[in-house]
Design a protein around this nucleic acid. Sequence first.
DNA 1: TGTTTTTTCCAAAACGTTTTGGATATATAT
DNA 2: ATATATATCCAAAACGTTTTGGAAAAAACA
Lengths: 345, 345
Amino acid sequence: MNIKKLAKKLNLSITTVSRGLGGYSDVNENTRKKIIKFAKKYNYAPNPNASNLASRKTNTLGFVIPLYGINSNRLNQASFFEFIAGMSNKINSENIQFIMTFANTINEEKNAYEKLIKINKVDKFILHNLKKNDSRINYLKKNKINFVGWGRTQGKINFPWVDLDNEGSVKLIMEYLYSKNHKNIAFINVEEKYNFAYQRKQGYVKFLKKNNLIFKKNLYISISNEDPDQSALVIEKKILNNSKITAIICSTEYSAAGAIKACNKLNKKVGIDISLITFDGAVVNSISSPSLTAVTHDRKKLGSKAIEILTTIKNSKSKSYFLAKPEIIERGSVLTLKNNKTVIK
Amino acid sequence: MNIKKLAKKLNLSITTVSRGLGGYSDVNENTRKKIIKFAKKYNYAPNPNASNLASRKTNTLGFVIPLYGINSNRLNQASFFEFIAGMSNKINSENIQFIMTFANTINEEKNAYEKLIKINKVDKFILHNLKKNDSRINYLKKNKINFVGWGRTQGKINFPWVDLDNEGSVKLIMEYLYSKNHKNIAFINVEEKYNFAYQRKQGYVKFLKKNNLIFKKNLYISISNEDPDQSALVIEKKILNNSKITAIICSTEYSAAGAIKACNKLNKKVGIDISLITFDGAVVNSISSPSLTAVTHDRKKLGSKAIEILTTIKNSKSKSYFLAKPEIIERGSVLTLKNNKTVIK
DNA sequence: TGTTTTTTCCAAAACGTTTTGGATATATAT
DNA sequence: ATATATATCCAAAACGTTTTGGAAAAAACA
């Protein structure tokens, strides 16, 4: 089935069918309805090659996946996979072509974008690994290439994006822990040069401020090393030596693994002597006991929303965004304390 | 730059340039060389949309990713990711279009193939999750659709494939463990309906036979559940209760995770009280302590080889295949035993 | 009423290739 | 020398769309 045959069946010209399907205003609403009805009936979908050729567009989405720095760890690969799985359905149904590239260094990453644009292969991007101030934003805008960020830059955000609710997550965790009567809560974050880490710290700080609590320096650490053993060492020395601390928030799975290790070493039972809550945690959970209470986001939805936004900004230049809703999955690693002296207003 | 401009620069017709680049015999060898030289010089690559349109091919690769059964576990996602990463470069350089679909049930999987073929979207596939006897093989052959299997069927293999060396891996592991003086080695496999699991069992059985050792039923179990907790339970009851066992081979990361959990519960130290060697394990490994000794294959290479084969069978109908080489990565989970009574011939 | 605007449709050109069916020149066979 | 085969090239058609630039009919306006 092609547009010619469909037009014949409808007793209309090829032009009208094309424009009807394209949503142009120069075709009568009833005609359009009939066209759509017939298209469905005869299972017609425009041939993407012909369509792209004629419209001088590539209609190809580029996705450059960073495999350096914080994304070099295999733990992160599953989260990319989830995101891609989320995108896929929409990509297919929208007839979008898809190109993936992998970058092992920041330079490779930069080159990948430039090349794909230069040879006119790609006319839309999903951006990942956003820096606080990301040069790609202006570069793509200048080249008039649509994009959606998976993540945000810092400050005023004037581009479409989807993101985890990093700030909200920590707020949610803090409320949750306070509701369980924890007061001295340590937060093990990663370097704040990653915007998501910065946002998570904001959630922590703002929660304290809002509730007239003070930010204690010795309760917050930022770990740059992805090795659980190294993390364990730091956590042992800087956190677990403080007997006042009753709960720990881990920003990544490997720091959670490190925390478990450190607890084991000091013979502190997770979920009894010390409470632990982690971001994500699907992998740690497979080997840890008790299973860890965790805050998670629906990453598949994040992916599908990204494509949804990407296809709608084609028409309206709206500043769309989507903030995923954090959810706490209760498992066995957070204890409810009994004696409650501090009351949160 | 397009073919018209290039032809003008070469003082040749569009036809000749196209056929020259296409490798047809009706263009003089010197002319062809010149064409290729100019194409490179002017950075010419055929517009894939125009090319596909004219040649009535979609040139699109379908990859249906199963997310049910053994593939539903998050631990497996990283291995898909690696494979895809391996494919990507070649896919891009060969100007192949790429469609991914995800299937949550075996029915969804079947439908995905049929639909992609029916609507003429895809003209080549990478097949995964091969059964001992896989109906997709004949279906695709009948529809004259090129494909390469990631995995094999059982028995005579008359289609192109890439695969892990499952049998060889277990042989390698057994030799390794015996060289460390382990004699009572348990093997935790998955259901043999998956051909890779069957092959792994073959490796185990053949090694024993070759060395005149007997296959002990209580040393071999096959776990159907992908949940580490369930695995842990089975391993605790059926393996760890047997004090003769000094080493465990895990066919998957989640059974390795289960084994770790079970060991923790019984207070057996991995790498000291019990040795553990797993397939892959990179994900679990990044958070486990001690790190797990593992047998691995280069999955990126597997992916790139798959595409390489797929593009060469286009021309020659050769029965190509690629068997990845297994490698043992020594980490901290296998102990060398001292007293050695049995000698392997 | 006649004129202008709006609505609704369409023919034809264009997109950049591949492929078909020769044409021409050269080499080979008779 | 003539007929046939081979090597090398090319013009034109085709692929299935989108878009341009109207045309015709209907509606609105004067």
